[in-house]
Amino acid sequence: MQSRTVNPQKENVKITETNLTSVVEFVLLGFSEIPRLHWFLFGTFSVIYLVILLGNGIIILIMRAESTLQTPMYFFISNFSFLEIRYVSVTLPRMLVDLWTQKGSISILACAAQMCFFLILGATECFLLAVMAYDHYVAICNPLHYPLVMSHEVCVRLGVGSWVIGMPVQVGQTCQIFSLPFCESNQINHFFCDIPNAQFDETVVYMFASLLITIPFMLILGSCSRMISTVLKLPSSTGRTKAFSTCSSHLIVVILFYGSVTVIVLHNCKPKSNQYDGTDKLLSLFYTILTPMLNPVICSLPNKDVSEALRKFLPKLIAIPDT
C-alpha cells in the first residue's frame, strides 16, 4: 500500500489511500477557543484541585483516625472520597499542564491510559454509589440486623467489588477503540481524551455505558423507594428527620453525578453534526470537578459525628510542635 506526501500541518498523521489516518498523537483543544482566559482558568482550576485534595483528604484522615467513625457508612464515605481524588487526578493535572504550556499534544498511549482510567473510575463511582445506597437501606429498613448484614468482611467485599467490577468492560472498550483506525483529524475538542473520531460501532459503546450507568441507578432507585416507604411509616418525627438526613446528602451526590452523565449520554446520541459543540466540556467539568469538590461538604460535613470529629482533628492537624 503506497502512502502519499504528508501535509506539514499534519506531521503527526500518516494518510494512506484508504483515507484513514494512522494517528501518532492527539491534540487536546481544551479551552483554546478562549486563549485570553488561559491564565485565569489555570489559577481557578489549580485552586479547585487543591480544595478537592485537601477536602477529601481530610475526610479520609478523620475517618481513619476517629474510632467513633469506624462504621460501614463512614467506610464507604472514605472510599468515595478516595475515589474522587483519583477521579479528578486523571483529568485535571493534565488540563493544568496544557493550560500552562498552551499545548495540547498527547501521545496515543497516554491518551488511551487516561481514557481507560477515566472510564474505570466512572464505573466505580456508579457502583460505589449503589453500594452506599444499599448500606443506607439496610440501616433504615433493617436496623436490627444491620451489624450482621453489613459486617466488616461484607463491606470490604462490596468496596473491592465496586472498584473492580467495571475494569474488564472498560479495558475491553478502550482496547477496541484504540485498535481501530481514526479518520479526518487527530484533534479532540475536549480537555481530556474522549474519542469522537474513531471508526467503531458507537452503539456497542453506548450500550455498555448505559448498562454500567443504568444497573447501579436502578439499584439506587429501588433502595431509595424502600427507604422512603419505611421512613414515612415511622411514628416519631425525630426518627423521620434523622432517617431523611442520613440519605439526603447521598441523594444529592447521585443527582449531581447521574444527572450530568445522563445529559452527556443523551447529547452524544445526537447526529454527528450536533456533537462536540462545547456542551460536552461544560457538562464534563460539572461531574469531573464540581462533584468531587462538593463531596466533603455534601456527604460529610452536615453529619454531626463528622463535624464533631473535624473540630477535634483540625487543631491537631495545624498545631505547631513546641521547639
Score class of each variant (00 low, 15 high):
Thr71Cys: 06
Pro271Trp: 04
Thr291Arg: 05
Cys111Arg: 00
Leu251Ile: 13
Asn12Phe: 05
Phe127Glu: 02
Ser3Phe: 14
Phe313Trp: 06
Asp98Asn: 15
His190Lys: 01
Gly122Ser: 15
Gly104Val: 00
Ser245Leu: 08
Phe178Glu: 07
Trp100Asp: 08
Met293Ile: 09
Gln9Tyr: 13
Ala133Glu: 04
Ile165Tyr: 01
Leu119Val: 02
Gly57Cys: 03
His145Thr: 07
Val156Ala: 11
Ala198Asn: 03
Cys126Pro: 02
Met73Ala: 12
Ile85Trp: 07
Phe217Cys: 03
Leu283Val: 03
Trp163Phe: 14
Gly161Glu: 04
Gln173Tyr: 06
Phe191Gln: 01
Asp277Gly: 06
Pro271Tyr: 03
Thr203Gly: 13
Leu41Gln: 07
Tyr137Asp: 09
Phe80Arg: 04
Pro271Thr: 10
Ile252Met: 14
Lys233Cys: 12
Ser223Glu: 02
Leu41Tyr: 11
Ile85Cys: 07
Arg311Val: 09
Ile34Leu: 10
Ile85Gly: 04
Ile108Glu: 12
Arg240Met: 07
Arg157Val: 04
Ile188Pro: 00
Val51Leu: 14
Thr68Trp: 04
Tyr49Phe: 15
Arg94Met: 07
Tyr87Ala: 01
Ser237His: 11
Leu285Ser: 05
His250Met: 14
Thr262Met: 11
Ile228Val: 14
Val51Ile: 14
Glu17Thr: 12
Thr291Tyr: 03
Gln275Ala: 02
Asn268Ile: 05
Cys155Met: 09
Tyr137Pro: 00
Leu212Met: 13
Cys155Lys: 05
Ser105Pro: 07
Thr279Lys: 05
Met63Lys: 07
Ile215Val: 15
Asp280Ser: 09
Asp277Cys: 04
Ile220Ser: 00
Pro147Ile: 10
Leu158Phe: 06
Pro271Phe: 03
Thr279Ile: 09
Glu11Val: 10
Val171Met: 13
Ser236Gln: 06
Ser46Trp: 03
Phe192Asp: 01
Leu96Tyr: 05
Met207Ile: 12
Val13Gly: 03
Leu144Phe: 11
Tyr146Lys: 08
Cys116Asp: 09
Asn19Ala: 14
Glu84Val: 05
Ile195Arg: 00
Tyr258Arg: 02
Lys242Asp: 11
Met63Asp: 00
Val47Trp: 02
Phe208Val: 12
Leu317Glu: 10
Leu232Cys: 08
Leu211Tyr: 04
Tyr206Arg: 10
Arg157Met: 11
Arg94Ser: 05
Phe45Val: 09
Asp98Val: 04
Phe40Gly: 06
Thr323Lys: 14
Gly172Ser: 04
Val97Tyr: 14
Leu251Met: 15
Gln114Trp: 00
Ile140Lys: 01
Leu310Gln: 02
Gly161Lys: 05
Asp98Phe: 12
